[in-house]
């Protein structure tokens, strides 16, 4: 995982990318890829497909970078929006015959290995929340994932999903309520 970039460093990289610097694009790719691949991985049948989708998203970003503006949504939010479109296009080919669900089930994210001596209680809690998260609807999962894994603000999530920021905040609150309820079900099971 590359070290986090400051806002200023990211802006400087994007400025250079808008001048089509290959070095800047490489740095942006390495910076954004883990989050984007993680997002795509939970929606596509294989790790290879997720990496392909992110590569495709970057190819589109390189072609469209002249259109990018720092208005309302940051570069990472913009990249999530492009990646989401690529993922949806790939999913669309599968949705009618349910193959995507079968493959997603077969390719559910592997458990994150705990470090030796890691807190067992925290580990159990993570497992509970992971199983509870899997019980949520697609919309709830995507919104929460963009917030916590993508690290996007509510405003950025709203831009990615094409919704109002207020609606996203309300939807997040309801999604967290449903997650709590699902966690209780998992713990009681």
């Amino acid at each position: 995982m590359p070290p986090p970039l400051t806002t200023e460093a990211l802006r400087e990289l994007v400025d250079r990318a808008q001048g089509h610097s290959p070095d800047a694009w490489e740095d942006l790719y390495l910076h954004c890829r883990p989050k984007l691949v993680g997002y795509a991985r939970r929606r596509l049948p294989s790790a290879q497909a997720a990496d392909d989708a992110v590569s495709e998203a970057f190819a589109r970003a390189i072609a469209k970078i002249d259109d990018f503006r720092w208005e309302g949504i940051g570069f990472e939010g913009w990249m999530f929006g492009i990646t989401r479109n690529v993922v949806l296009e790939i999913q669309r080919a599968f949705t009618r015959d349910r193959r995507i669900e079968d493959r997603q089930a077969a390719a559910s994210p592997p458990p994150v290995p705990d470090e030796v001596g890691a807190n067992l209680e925290r580990s159990e809690e993570r497992e509970h929340v992971r199983r509870a998260f899997a019980r949520l609807g697609d919309d709830d999962r995507e919104l929460l994932e963009l917030r916590v894994v993508g690290g996007l603000t509510a405003d950025e999530v709203a831009a990615v999903l094409g919704k109002q920021a207020g609606a996203v905040r309300m939807a997040q609150s309801r999604a967290l309520d449903r997650l709590r309820a699902a966690m209780k079900e998992v713990q009681d099971a």
């Binding site: 990496d51 590569s55 497992e127 929340v129 992971r130 998260f133 917030r147 916590v148 709590r180």
Partner: peptide, 20 residues
Amino acid sequence: LLDLLGDALREPVPAPDPQR
């Protein structure tokens, strides 16, 4: 809850293929 969820969902992503 958001912190816990992020902790649960973040997965290590291997370094990209140099060809990519």
